[in-house]
Design a protein around this nucleic acid. Sequence first.
DNA 1: CAGGATCCGTACTGATACTG
DNA 2: CAGTATCAGTACGGATCCTG
Lengths: 109, 109
Amino acid sequence: MHKTGGDNPKKLVSCPVEATIQVVGGRWKVLILHRLLEHDMRFGELLRALKGVTARTLTKQLRELEADGIVSRTVHQQVPPMVEYAITPKGRELEPTLLAMHAWGEKYG
Amino acid sequence: MHKTGGDNPKKLVSCPVEATIQVVGGRWKVLILHRLLEHDMRFGELLRALKGVTARTLTKQLRELEADGIVSRTVHQQVPPMVEYAITPKGRELEPTLLAMHAWGEKYG
DNA sequence: CAGGATCCGTACTGATACTG
DNA sequence: CAGTATCAGTACGGATCCTG
């Protein structure tokens, strides 16, 4: 979720819960985090793992997560190029949230 | 969250985490739940509590939460009208998620 | 009081084609 | 491989006016 932001002017968050939703609210972000919490992944791996996402969208969501300090992006200089995404400590602390969401989603939904 | 759906065709959720995000991903939904977890509220109360939301938007978000079985809507037949919103048992089980989000948002963000 | 109706901006996301 | 550029649809959410 992430819609009124525009150029991400930090948005003036009134409640801590809102801050978290803005970081995790994107269409694919929780899925991305879910994967990266298990192990680092390359761009192409994520692209295949998240059936349905396009490269353009995946790139944007990853960039936003990166800007929020949730994931790190490491470019391995070589041919062909290889870019690895990993979760940061800050991002890993979202794991309880993800687990809680997973539990709820499994019970309902 | 909560974007490509359209007329809410149950969306084919591949991961439980995704199901939860789709329910909670609205711009104001976590704020609404946060309030309702404390105590029931009338429409006008919510409208004032959530500084910045419009009546139209609040109505829509409440209707979606209602459709997802997260909140209940009780109309007290009288003049002037009085409508109370409350959290359902299903909705209350989102509390761990909200708490986890609250903790993270308090530390970062 | 608690909305419904209408108009509308724009952010989100996808499709497709192209590049270092 | 890992993107970027461009075009475009549409759902989300706000503003404003109106009503039982």
